[in-house]
């Protein structure tokens, strides 16, 4: 029999945080300096917890003078994002620049293609004054069916209307919104190549494993130092490295659509503190009974959560797969 510990709410807490941070930094230096032979790091900073911790780790690994932080706002970005990102780069004494990508997005037709699809579902939507977001209604949580997305329009008078997205409209909204992450990646690689630096990616373990990233968008990077860390652990490192409190306290948002929304509402469907533990339980093979007794859920409910994880991992395999090139031996 194995000697693994009993499942508990504390099981994923990092015990020797200084050693964990040092180990990540050592690998960062090995990968960026020795393996890739790049002179420093470019990081897109959003004022969110993941990019802030990534920057803090990079500062510790490479030194502040070898880092360029790039803020990449666009028309739909929350103004808070830039202010928080600025607070972060000031605190860590990192050179920061702002690259507004709205013009590029206009050129791609990002906003017009998205709004055209929204209007086909909710014709009253006026993008000049109304706001929109894509959500998974709470009724879909805990079902054995995959989630179906809805578009929600928040009208200028504060009223809201939701409608289920048919396949073509859903795909068009996602495809147009993904111009944002891909334009950001293009800009980050511009600066990385101009400086002979590497691009440091910011996705965490859930984003990587559940496919909550855009292929060749925020999924485009040379290294992803927090890609194997649970969100709980990201917050632990944030406190350890001195990320500003305002960033730590801010709820994780997508900052993708015009209306405000949390990542929980858009994608994960449960608070990250719980998701971390369920994912760990599933990944490590803890029984639904054992996990359920700690988390206050029935074994059947935990089993449904496990199945949902399995489904997400399987259906997003495409996103994590690099181009297949070995066609002829």
């Amino acid at each position: 029999m194995n000697n693994r510990p009993n499942f508990s709410r504390e099981i994923i807490q990092l015990q020797n945080i200084d050693e964990v941070v040092e180990s990540i930094c050592e690998k960062l230096r090995d990968d960026v300096f020795k393996r890739f032979r790049r002179q420093g790091a470019v990081i897109g900073v959003s004022g969110g917890i993941d990019s802030s911790v990534t920057l803090a780790l990079a500062v510790k690994a490479f030194g502040a003078d070898k880092i360029l932080a790039v803020m990449l706002p666009e028309t739909d970005s929350s103004p808070d994002s830039e202010a928080l990102a600025r607070q972060l780069t000031d605190k860590f004494k990192v050179k920061a620049i702002v690259e507004n990508i709205s013009g590029a997005l206009d050129g791609f037709g990002c906003y017009s293609r998205r709004d055209e699809a929204v209007k086909r579902v909710i014709p009253e939507y006026n993008p000049a004054i109304d706001k929109m977001k894509v959500i998974i209604p709470k009724e879909f949580v805990g079902k054995n069916l995959p989630p179906v997305h809805y578009v929600a329009v928040v009208f200028a008078d504060g009223t809201e209307k939701q409608a289920r997205l048919p396949l073509n409209e859903y795909l068009q909204i996602v495809a147009s919104s993904n111009f944002k992450q891909r334009s950001r990646a293009s800009m980050l690689y511009y600066h990385a190549e101009a400086l002979h630096y590497a691009v440091i990616g910011t996705p965490n373990k859930h984003e990587v494993q559940q496919g909550f990233f855009v292929k060749y968008g925020d999924g485009a990077a040379d290294v992803m130092p927090i890609g194997n860390l649970f969100k709980t652990q990201v917050y632990q490192i944030a406190r350890y490295l001195g990320v500003p409190d305002e960033i730590i306290k801010r709820p994780p948002t997508t900052d993708t659509y015009t209306a405000e929304q949390t990542q929980e509402e858009f994608f994960y469907q449960m608070p990250f503190e719980e998701m971390d533990l369920f994912w760990y339980g599933w990944e490590q093979g803890y029984s639904p009974d054992e996990v359920g007794s700690v988390m206050g859920k029935s074994a059947d409910e935990v089993l449904k959560i496990y199945r949902n994880f399995e489904r997400k991992k399987k259906t997003t395999d495409y996103l994590r797969t690099p181009p297949v090139h070995n066609y002829l031996n």
Binding site: P146, P147, V148, H149, L165, P166, R311, K314, T315
Partner: peptide
């Protein structure tokens, strides 16, 4: 769905 034959895109296509 449980057996992974269909995903959420499949469900939308089926509708």
């Amino acid at each position: 769905f449980e057996d992974g034959i269909f995903d959420s895109m499949g469900l939308l296509g089926l509708i």
